[in-house]
Computed example of a mutant assay.
Amino acid sequence: MGMLLESPQFNAAWSTTLKLLTGGTLGLLLAIMLLSVFRDSPLFSLDGFLGIALPFAIIMGTAAFSVRGYSIEDGQIRIHRLGWSTTYPVDTVHHAEVVPGIMKGSIRTWGNGGLFGFIGHFQNDRLGAYRAYATNATDIVHLRIDGESIVITPNRPGEFVGRLKQDAAWEPNVVPS
């Protein structure tokens, strides 16, 4: 588990699309909460409670799983979250390449498709089933880890793959962006 104040080596820059999706969704959820507070039914009723608790739970739940950045340290790829991190051992990475746009045409099968990130399980024709920890569609690094496809979006993808190359026993592919 990572520390809350731990600083990632590579930022997870948000695309304009992600900013718009997050802003719009937060606006809608906050409007639902405000309407629940100012409507005629009491806050202690079931619908009053749900109108506040459900949007709040959605915001907090998705924020907890958001991606703050990425680092490679102590033989681990670390995906920094809000107060914790997801890790993958570098020695389990069999392939890494920079592939802008590889998420195009993806269908979300389980996860979050735009509130604080594109995080979860997705599928498309190029990758098949894959897991994403993404915040934009341009700085994409595709990893193969123990047979699983994983997509991450560090702000300097070529440098990220270069760091992996230093720490791994294989030659990762770097596709120019």
Rank of each mutant, 00 (worst) to 15 (best):
Lys104Asp: 14
Met33Ile: 09
Thr16Trp: 06
Arg144Gly: 00
Gln9Leu: 08
Phe49Met: 12
Ile77Asp: 03
Gly114Asp: 06
Val67Phe: 04
Gly111Cys: 14
Leu21Lys: 10
Tyr88Asp: 06
Arg68Tyr: 03
Phe49His: 02
Ile77Cys: 03
Phe56Leu: 12
Thr109Arg: 15
Arg108Thr: 08
Asp91His: 14
Arg163Val: 11
Thr22Ile: 07
Gly128Asp: 08
Gly27Ser: 13
Pro100Ala: 05
Leu34Ala: 14
Met60Cys: 15
Ala96Phe: 02
Thr135Tyr: 05
Leu30Trp: 08
Trp110Cys: 07
Ser106Gln: 14
Asp146Ile: 00
Asp167Ala: 15
Asn136Leu: 07
Glu6Asp: 15
Glu171Thr: 15
Ala168His: 09
Glu148Ala: 10
Met3Lys: 12
Val37Thr: 08
Tyr70Lys: 05
Val67Glu: 07
Phe38Trp: 11
Leu26Asp: 10
Ile79Glu: 10
Gly162Cys: 00
Pro100Cys: 02
Ala168Cys: 07
Lys104Phe: 07
Phe116Leu: 05
Ile58Thr: 13
Leu34Gln: 07
Gly24Met: 04
Pro89Ile: 02
Lys104Gln: 14
Arg126Gln: 13
Ile152Gln: 01
Ala96Thr: 04
Ile32Arg: 09
Glu6Asn: 12
Tyr133Phe: 15
Met60Gln: 15
Ile72Glu: 01
Asn136Tyr: 09
Thr87Val: 14
Ser66Ile: 01
Pro157Phe: 03
Glu148Trp: 00
Ala31Arg: 06
His94Ser: 14
Ile107Lys: 14
Leu35Lys: 12
Tyr133Ala: 04
Gln123Arg: 15
Ile59Cys: 10
Ala134Glu: 02
Arg81Met: 09
Gly24Cys: 03
Ala169Arg: 11
Ala129Asn: 13
Ser7Val: 15
Ile107Met: 10
Thr62Gly: 00
Phe116Arg: 07
